[in-house]
Amino acid sequence: MGFLDGILYVIPAVLLAMTVHEYAHAKMAHSLGDNTAQREGRLTLNPLEHVDPLGLLMLIIVRFGWAKPVPINPFNFKGNRDAGIIKVSLAGPLANLALAFVSLVLLRVVATIGASLPLQSDLLGVIQALQTFFMLLARLNLYFMVFNLIPLPPLDGSKILTSVLSPKARMQYQQVEAYAPLILILLLVTRTLPRILVPIAETILSTLFFIVFGII
């Protein structure tokens, strides 16, 4: 696959992963009583409302990036505020996990159709392209999920961790926020982050692949 061909697969996969992730945040916040994201046009599956240009570029180039954070106001949440923050923060990564699973199911469907076609079929090229795309879509969603669960501000993992810490520990942890971008850059430059996250994402991918192709 050439560079340009790869971009044609990567860009729509990245847009789908980002859009589903951010929409899930907005939808969960809305279900808890906060309509901040809705007022700002973020309760939508339109990718243009969620894309951060730099984050998109980084995700395409190094497979780790970000979208525009969905604005929420935890004071509008019904019930326990910290529990609401955890639910909203988990909604995005779990949506990516679900989309990865659906992608592999579609991959199996397409592969089954392809196996039934004659070798001379004109559709084999389309089948191969769809297989490539669905595999990439599953992988990127899992990378996006695992990356966003890193407990560094402003990623989802930091919000989850902050919500379960004691007030004193929370104040100490929040002091890390100013240094979080630098820490992430150092982790990327030293390739520490990929060495940790890629095996985790690939292990989850292998597990899902086995579930879809080995059991279902």
Rank of each mutant, 00 (worst) to 15 (best):
N141T: 08
N141D: 07
N141F: 10
Y143G: 09
Y143W: 11
Y143C: 08
M145S: 05
M145W: 06
M145Y: 07
V146Q: 06
V146S: 09
F147V: 05
F147S: 07
F147W: 03
N148F: 03
L149E: 00
L149Q: 00
L149M: 04
L149N: 00
I150K: 01
I150D: 04
I150W: 00
P153K: 08
P154L: 06
D156F: 01
G157S: 03
G157R: 00
K159G: 01
K159R: 14
I160L: 09
T162G: 11
S163E: 04
V164S: 09
V164Y: 06
S166V: 04
S166F: 05
P167F: 08
P167M: 11
P167N: 12
Q172I: 02
Q175G: 14
Q175P: 02
V176P: 04
A178D: 09
A178Q: 12
A180M: 12
A180E: 12
P181A: 08
P181R: 03
P181C: 08
L182P: 03
L182N: 02
L182A: 13
I183Y: 07
I185K: 03
I185F: 13
L186M: 11
L188I: 13
V189S: 07
T190C: 10
R191D: 03
T192A: 10
T192R: 00
I196F: 13
I196S: 09
I196M: 12
L197E: 07
V198Y: 10
V198W: 04
I200Y: 14
I200N: 14
A201F: 12
E202R: 13
E202W: 14
E202P: 15
I204N: 07
L205Q: 11
L205H: 13
